[in-house]
């Protein structure tokens, strides 16, 4: 937990186009001047209500959208200064698990083929790829028949596991988890969280965990950033955030958790 894996400096994202003669200009300031660092091996939580810009930060880290202002550095190297090779290498090192497992898979392709295609780009031997896909599918707790199924033939929890298998198959270092369990039942939720914890240990992964309330975050994260309307209001260790919240937004988020079961990392 020493060297920062990811640094985000004064990051800003404005969606939409500037107003001009032809356009009315409907710009949205989704993320406003946000800075934080994520250390190797830790779980960094980003918490905020719906629309506060959490997914947008995830998208920018994944380079799925360009940022408007500021810098993102991966292992000290600026995104804007990536060469073609370093961008390629980076792409397999940072992966994402999407918020909505129901639409994160193409409905007309089998689960297995969708887990396979990142790997098919690197390895041409189809048999080897298939073996690897089955290995990862079983590792996330699914049976190998699931590879031949279509997304709608899986439950939400099973789809989320498949999403984890897809994200892990290129052996990433950093995983962006965009509300990976918020659409799931309580019992399934804890199973997925357990799986994520085990995988973190096994592969020495760094997580960015996005959530809209402080419920699971306390248990799962080492450090937390609290977002409100595109801005980070407070960053600190889980202990600081829970025991000495400064910002009224944080206090409000805390008070909305009715049952704190005390299992969070503060206590150990």
């Amino acid at each position: 937990m020493t060297e920062p894996l990811l640094e985000v400096k004064n990051l800003t994202k404005i969606y939409g186009q500037k107003k001009n003669l032809l356009r009315s200009g409907n710009q949205v300031l989704a993320v406003n001047n946000v800075s934080f660092t994520v250390n190797k091996g830790e779980t960094f939580g980003i918490v905020g209500e719906s629309g506060s810009g959490k997914t947008t930060i995830g998208r920018m880290i994944m380079q799925l959208v360009n940022h408007t202002n500021g810098d993102i550095l991966y292992k000290g190297q600026k995104y804007s200064e990536f060469t073609k090779e370093s961008a390629e290498r980076f792409k397999s090192k940072v992966q994402i698990i999407f918020q909505d497992s129901g639409s994160a898979f193409n409905p007309r392709k089998t689960i297995g083929s969708q887990i396979a295609y990142p790997l098919l780009k690197k390895i041409k031997d189809r048999k080897a790829v298939l073996d690897e896909v089955i290995k990862f599918i079983e590792m996330v707790g699914l049976s190998k028949e699931m590879a031949y199924r279509y997304p709608h033939e899986l439950s939400g929890g099973q789809r989320q596991r498949a999403g984890i298998a897809r994200a892990l198959i290129l052996k990433p270092e950093l995983l962006v988890l965009d509300e990976p369990v918020s659409a799931l039942d309580v019992s399934v939720k804890s199973q997925i969280i357990n799986l994520l914890e085990n995988l973190q240990k096994k592969y020495n992964l760094t997580y960015i965990f996005i959530a809209h309330n402080l419920d699971l975050v306390a248990y799962f994260c080492d450090r937390i950033a609290v977002m409100y309307h595109g801005e980070i209001k407070e960053v600190g260790s889980t202990k600081q955030i829970y025991q000495f919240p400064h910002n009224p937004i944080t206090k409000k988020l805390l008070s909305s958790i009715l049952t704190l079961d005390g299992r969070y990392k503060v206590s150990n």
Binding site: Q95, I96, A104, N106, R166
Partner: peptide, 13 residues
Amino acid sequence: QKEYIEAASAFGR
């Protein structure tokens, strides 16, 4: 609009 398109580009399509 659907997430699988974003997923596809995230996974290198």
